[in-house]
Design a protein around this nucleic acid. Structure first.
Lengths: 336, 336
DNA sequence: CTGAAAGCGCTTACAG
DNA sequence: CTGAAAGCGCTTACAG
C-alpha cells in the first residue's frame, strides 16, 4: 500500500512468495535454483528496479569489490604532466566495470606510511593499483610489508615479487631509434625522463642499440635526462641546439615532452620534421592532435588497463603473481 | 595468543574490559563516555592500529560517506580536453577527504538513464558531483526525477532548483576584454566554447560590454564558437586571420584553446604578445608553463572543489539547495 | 531445489 | 556513564 516498500531482498521475497535465501541465490545466479523460480524472482526484481545493497553484501562477503587507484596528494601536482595517468585511469575504469568492481580514487599523502591500512583494514578496498616512479618506490615497501594486494604499472624491482604490467621499453626505444635511422637521420638526440627510472634506461638502451646497428656512433652530448613534462622538453631541445646545432632528430620519452620540443622548435623557426624529426612516446590522444601529428611509440593503454585489473583481481583471489610486458608499436604520423 | 585477533570493535572491547557499545561510542567520539574510559580505549585501539570496518558501519548508519564523481564513459574521450576536469577532481578529492568522505569514480554511459539508481539504491554513494555541459543536461533531468542528491559545476538552468557552483563568467569575460582594451588592442577576437553553453554566452556578454565601454564597435566577424579544445583554438585563429588579418588580440575560452592559438601563431611566425595578445580562461597549471606564460582568468578550482563538496554534503544532510557563484580574477602573465 | 537460522561488524535506542 | 540487545541487509552452511 505504501509508496515503495521494495528496498530489500526480503521485500522481493515476500512479493515472490519465497524466502530471502532463494532471492539471494537467484540474484547471485546460483545454479541451485529452479528455472521457474529464478524467472519469477527476476521478473519481480526487475519490475521494481531492485538493486542489492552493497554495504550489506560486502559485510557478508567480507570483501569490497572495489579497488583503489593511488595518486599523490596535492592538487598542485595534477597537471598536463598527469595526462598519462588520466588516460590510464580511463582504461582501468572501463576494465573494472566489466568485472563489477568499483574504483576509489586515493589521493595519498606521500609521507604517510599508514594509508594502505586505512583502506584495507576498513574494508573499503580489496587492493591497489599504482603507477610507479622513483618517488613512489617506498610505497611498494609499505604495501609489501603489510602484505597488501596490489599491482603496479612499471618495472618491478628485483628482490621482491609482486604483480606488474609494463610496456616493453627496450623495444620502444629500439623502434624509435630504428625509425629515425631509417629515415636518414644522423644526429639523433635522446631526451629522457628521469635517469634513475628503469623504463628510461631501457628506452635509452634500445635506442642506442638501434643506432649501433646502423653504425651511428654514440654521442653522449646528445643525451639528456629530466622529467616527462613539456617544460623539460622545451628546455632540453633549446640547450641541445646550443651545444649541437646539427641535431636533425629527437626521440622524446613522452608525447608531452615531444610537444614541448615541437613548440620550441616552431618558435625557433625550425620545421618539423624537415629540419628536425621528433618522435614521442605513449601515444596519448593528444599525439594525433599535435601539429604536426606525432609519430610515437604506442603503449596500448586500454590493454594495459585491462591487464592491470584482470591480474590484480586474480591476485586477490588466488595469490598468483604475474608480471607482464606489453608489446609496443611504432605509430608513424607527421612529426618523423 | 594467536597472531592478530584484533580486527573488530569486539576485540578492542575485550582488551579494554568494556562493552562493544562503549568502544563504538568512544570511536565515534560520543560525549557520553567518561574521559578515563575514552583514553584507555583509544590507547588500545591505537596500539593495535585498529580501524573501523566501513561496510559494517555504512550498513548500520544507512549511508555510505562516499560521493560519486560523474564522468563520461569511453576511454577515448579522455584527453587534454579534460584537463580542467582533472584539476577539478584533485580539488574535490582534497575537500572530500577533509570531511572523511570517499570518492568513487563513475564512468557513466551517456545513453544509460538508470545509472543514478545503480549507485544510490545500492548504497554505494550518497550523492553525485558532475561537471555540466550541454550533452549532460539530460543527466540532470534523470537525477531530478529520482530525487538524487547532486551538485553541478555549471550554471543551473531555470525551471528546476538544484545545487550548483560556478565561476562568474560575465565578470570573467569582462575582465578579459577590459585588460585587452587597456593594453591598447583594437581588433579583439573572441574564440568561444560551444555557443549553446550559458557560460560561453555570459563570457561573450561580459567581453562585449568591456569593448562597448571602451567605444570599440562590435564586430561579429571576430566572434567564433566551437569547443574547448586546443585543436579548435588552432583552427579558429587560422580562419580568423584569413578573414581579418588585422586582429591584434584574442580572448580564448579556455587555457587549452589559448595554447592552441599560441602554437599556431608561432608557426605562422607571429609574436605573442607583440603581434597578437592572447588571454585564456581557467588558469590551470599548464597556464603558467606555456610559452609565453598565459595571461588568463583564474577560476579558483581549489575553492570550487571545496564548495562543491561542502554544499553537496550539506544538501544531503539538510536538503538545503545552494547556488554559488565564485569570483574570478585576472592573472597577468606574458601572453597579454 | 528451498527455507530457517546464524553471522558479517557495526550503531543506538532502551534500561539502568 | 555503561551494557545487553536489536537491527542494518545481505550470504551461506545446514537440514530437509
Amino acid at each position: 500500500m505504501s509508496k515503495r516498500p521494495v528496498r530489500t531482498i526480503e521485500d522481493i521475497a515476500r512479493l515472490a512468495g519465497v524466502s530471502k535465501s532463494t532471492v539471494s541465490r537467484v540474484l547471485s545466479n546460483s545454479p541451485l535454483i529452479s528455472d521457474r523460480t529464478k524467472q519469477r524472482v527476476l521478473a519481480i526484481a526487475k519490475e521494481h528496479n531492485f538493486r542489492i545493497h552493497q554495504p550489506a553484501r560486502r559485510l557478508s562477503l567480507r570483501h569490497s569489490s572495489t579497488i583503489g587507484f593511488v595518486t599523490h596528494g596535492h592538487t598542485k601536482n595534477i597537471s598536463v604532466e598527469d595526462l598519462f595517468q588520466l588516460e590510464m585511469l580511463g582504461a582501468i575504469s572501463a576494465a573494472l566495470s566489466s568485472y563489477n568492481y568499483d574504483l576509489l580514487m586515493l589521493h595519498v599523502d606521500p609521507y604517510d606510511n599508514n594509508w594502505p591500512n586505512e583502506y584495507l583494514n576498513t574494508g573499503r578496498v580489496d587492493g591497489f593499483i599504482l603507477m610507479t616512479s622513483t618517488r613512489k618506490q617506498h610505497h611498494i615497501q609499505t604495501l609489501l610489508e603489510i602484505q597488501a594486494p596490489f599491482i603496479i604499472w612499471g618495472v618491478p624491482v628485483p628482490p621482491h615479487s609482486y604483480c606488474s604490467v609494463v610496456g616493453d621499453s627496450f623495444r620502444g626505444g629500439h623502434l624509435a631509434g630504428e625509425h629515425l635511422v631509417q629515415s636518414g637521420r644522423k644526429k639523433i638526440a635522446f631526451i629522457g625522463g628521469p635517469e634513475d627510472e628503469l623504463e628510461v634506461t631501457l628506452r635509452l638502451q634500445g635506442f642506442q642499440t638501434a643506432l649501433d646497428q646502423a653504425g651511428i656512433p654514440a654521442d653522449p652530448g646528445l643525451i639528456t635526462f629530466g622529467d616527462f613534462t613539456s617544460a623539460f622538453g622545451s628546455q632540453a631541445i633549446r640547450e641541445l641546439l646550443e651545444r649541437s646545432p646539427e641535431v636533425d632528430a629527437v626521440f622524446a620519452n613522452s608525447d608531452i615532452m615531444a610537444i614541448g620540443v615541437i613548440n620550441t622548435l616552431h618558435s625557433l623557426g625550425k620545421n618539423v620534421p624537415d629540419d628536425i624529426a621528433v618522435v614521442g612516446y605513449d601515444d596519448l590522444s593528444i599525439a594525433q592532435h599535435a601539429t604536426p601529428p606525432l609519430t610515437t611509440i604506442r603503449q596500448h593503454l586500454p590493454q594495459a588497463g585491462q591487464l592491470l585489473v584482470q591480474n590484480l583481481i586474480q591476485h586477490i583471489q588466488t595469490g598468483v603473481v604475474t608480471n607482464v610486458s606489453i608489446p609496443v608499436e611504432l605509430v608513424t604520423r607527421g612529426s618523423a
